[in-house]
């Protein structure tokens, strides 16, 4: 890798072109990118547009420009500002799907293990681990003050004395804090088969190799049980 005088890596144009071609070859591309009149309806209806310098109109225009440089500029932060709510696709008068374009670009970032994808997916490694180990997405012990600050100011209090609080819930719980519900080993095996087929394990390997190792051990254990 080459670096400029500020130590920032220089990405060769050929590579940017390859990324663009990969997006353009996606089977959804033709359906998502049509004519665009720069009307701004998509952006006007886009929730994050109110908070960030982010615009689905720009995403679609960049795509239509076929300029690998412009598309590359979105790969780092831009595409991760989208909520994937698809309001844009619902309201575009010309039936474009900027959110869909973003999904295509994100999938490339994940498949290729780009730094941006690693950074964004980091907070979810706990969720992935929980899911692969227990078939649960969230469990009480995952409520910790340093994670998910967006859960509000009472997260600190909520995370203390979990076993007691758990018992106080007036309906049947498993009386444990590491599980929300029990999942049968057969179900777990099926889940792994789906993950295999859908390439989920490969994705985890590329964005978080150490997590992948831990998960592989768990998967092997369950599969051989």
């Amino acid at each position: 890798m080459e670096y400029d005088e500020n130590g920032v890596s220089i990405v060769p144009f050929e590579f940017k072109k390859e990324i663009f071609e990969e997006a353009r070859k996606d089977f959804r591309y033709e359906e998502y990118v049509r004519g665009c009149l720069n009307c701004g309806v998509c952006t006007g209806g886009c929730p994050p547009h109110r908070f960030f310098d982010f615009s689905p109109r720009i995403v679609l225009q960049n795509m239509k420009s076929k300029d690998p440089e412009l598309i590359w500029t979105m790969m780092d932060e831009y595409i991760w500002a989208c909520f994937q709510c698809f309001t844009c696709a619902m309201i575009c008068p010309f039936l474009n799907n900027p959110g869909g374009v973003i999904a295509i670009l994100r999938e490339i970032a994940v498949r290729r293990g780009f730094e941006s994808a690693k950074k964004v997916l980091k907070p979810y490694s706990r969720v992935l681990l929980k899911l692969t180990a227990y078939g649960n997405q969230l469990s009480p012990d995952m409520i910790q003050p340093d994670f998910f600050p967006d859960w509000g100011p009472h997260i600190g209090y909520a995370s203390t004395d979990l076993p007691t609080k758990r018992k106080a819930i007036p309906m049947p719980t498993l009386q444990v804090t590491n599980l929300a519900w029990d999942v049968a080993p057969e179900t777990m095996k099926e889940l792994y088969d789906i993950f295999d087929e859908a390439g989920v394990f490969k994705i985890i390997e590329s964005v978080d190799p150490s997590l992948y190792e831990i998960i592989q051990d768990i998967v092997d254990d369950v599969r051989s049980s």
């Binding site: 309806v41 952006t43 547009h49």
Partner: peptide
Amino acid sequence: CKGEDTLLRGP
């Protein structure tokens, strides 16, 4: 009226 001023103001 909610929208995007695509030239000047943004949202």
